[in-house]
Simulated assay, not measured.
Amino acid sequence: MKPRIIGSDSEIAKCIYLQSKIEVWFDGDITEVGTIDSFNGETVKINDNYIVRKYCILKIVDMNFHLIK
């Protein structure tokens, strides 16, 4: 299965709850892999790094994500 792109607040909250592994993509390259510690409307915190949401693509690589709706 290929990674699923996430972006909504509810999807990110599910990832935090499930401790799902996330890939952060900038310009077609993976720049970070880890779990989301926290987020707000502007940023996500992954591995103690704050990442501006509008400049990246977040992809979930943990396929347990679909279990909670």
Rank of each mutant, 00 (worst) to 15 (best):
S8K: 15
R4P: 00
F65N: 02
I5G: 00
D27S: 11
K21F: 01
N64R: 15
H66C: 02
T31M: 10
I16P: 04
K59M: 14
I12N: 03
Y55H: 12
V52Q: 12
D37H: 10
M63E: 13
V61D: 05
Q19W: 01
I12S: 03
I16D: 00
V61W: 06
K69V: 08
E42R: 14
I60L: 05
I60E: 07
I6R: 10
F26Q: 14
I22S: 03
V33K: 14
K2Q: 08
K59S: 13
I5L: 04
F65I: 14
Q19D: 12
D9G: 06
N47P: 02
K21D: 11
A13E: 14
E42H: 12
C15L: 01
G41F: 01
I6A: 07
E23H: 11
K54S: 14
D9T: 09
F65W: 06
G34A: 03
N40I: 06
T43F: 15
L67C: 05
I60D: 12
K2H: 03
Y55Q: 11
K45W: 02
N40S: 14
I46G: 03
R4T: 09
F26C: 02
V44D: 03
I6W: 07
S8F: 06
E11A: 12
I5P: 00
N49L: 04
R4S: 10
N64D: 14
L18A: 09
V61I: 15
M63D: 12
F39Q: 08
N40H: 02
N47L: 03
I36M: 02
I6H: 08
L67M: 10
Y50F: 12
V52Y: 11
Y55N: 15
R4N: 01
Q19T: 06
S8T: 15
R53Q: 12
I68E: 10
S38N: 12
H66W: 09
K69N: 14
S10V: 12
Y50D: 09
K14F: 01
K69P: 04
F65P: 00
H66R: 09
F65L: 13
L67A: 08
V24P: 07
K69W: 06
I22W: 03
Q19R: 13
V61G: 07
I51W: 10
V33T: 15
I12E: 01
G41L: 05
V44N: 05
N64G: 08
G34H: 06
Y17S: 03
L18K: 13
K21P: 00
D37V: 03
I30R: 13
I5N: 04
I16S: 00
G7I: 04
E42N: 11
I46A: 02
I36D: 02
N64C: 02
V33R: 15
I16V: 15
G7Q: 09
Y55L: 12
I68R: 11
R4E: 09
Y50A: 05
M63P: 07
Y55T: 08
L18D: 01
I22A: 03
E23C: 08
F39H: 15
M63Q: 10
V52M: 11
K59Y: 07
S8Y: 05
G7R: 13
D62S: 14
E32S: 07
